[in-house]
């Protein structure tokens, strides 16, 4: 929930960040490995407690994979979903550190690029985040040119919550409804450079549903290099 608070604070900024508009065209088939999607769908109960829903989360994960694959197929990039994609356990110690570093870089981007009060003056307008040259280890592991890291949280107001929102609205008290939030980070596995990053934070969308998930992914992948 604390993490979602960060998203809420970034809600007014809209743009994606990128270093390039195009994926490398070295090989015919550009391969993007989809790292295990960190996703959770939940019900927001009347009292504000988020209740995770396993069935929705499972469906949401499938929808996201399908939508991502469809989206990138349009510009001849292939989304690679490793076997055991939910399990980071088959990575060795060093590979796991790279994944963890990528998450740390993602958090840093979110904080320092999207929160005006945490802007780093030395960064000026350059977007130069990187996970370093060890990214090559992931390239070897997955035989891919890029790695895509996706984080998604999607909560839905229960009917009780909706009622509380309505009562609150009548009395002039703002009550938070469901929220859809996420980040996506695209890393060049030759250099470790983050070549594109975006985040999503809004009070609409529905990952439980295939069509709506396609719309979410389209929005999340705004200005994704082609």
């Amino acid at each position: 929930m604390a993490t979602l608070a960060v998203f809420a604070l970034t809600a007014c900024v809209q743009t994606a960040h990128k270093t390039t508009g195009e994926l490398k065209s070295g090989s015919e088939n550009r391969r993007i490995v989809l790292m295990p999607v960190d996703i959770e769908l939940s019900v927001l109960n009347a009292g504000g407690v988020n209740e995770p829903r396993a069935d929705w989360t499972n469906a949401g994960r499938e929808h996201v994979r399908t939508a991502l694959a469809a989206h990138t197929a349009a510009f001849e990039a292939e989304i690679v979903v490793p076997d055991n994609s939910d399990i980071l356990d088959d990575l060795d110690k060093e590979q796991l550190q790279i994944v963890k570093l990528a998450n740390a870089v993602g958090s840093s981007i979110l904080l320092h690029e999207y929160l005006p009060q945490l802007k780093l003056p030395t960064k000026k307008d350059q977007f130069d985040w990187t996970i370093g040259p060890d990214a090559k280890l992931l390239k070897e592991k997955y035989d891919a040119d890029y790695a895509l890291f996706v984080f998604l949280r999607d909560s839905y107001a229960s009917s009780g919550r909706v009622a509380v929102i309505i009562i609150g609205a009548i009395l002039g008290v703002g009550v938070q409804g469901g929220i859809q939030a996420g980040t996506a980070t695209l890393v060049d596995l030759d250099t470790g450079q983050v070549v594109w990053f975006n985040r999503l934070a809004r009070a609409s969308g529905d990952l439980r549903n295939g069509d709506a998930a396609t719309e979410t992914i389209k929005l999340l992948l705004t200005e994704f290099p082609t």
Partner: peptide
């Protein structure tokens, strides 16, 4: 702690 670290940072 993951969330709290972010909160603390904020």
């Amino acid at each position: 702690s993951i969330g709290l670290a972010v909160t603390a940072l904020l």
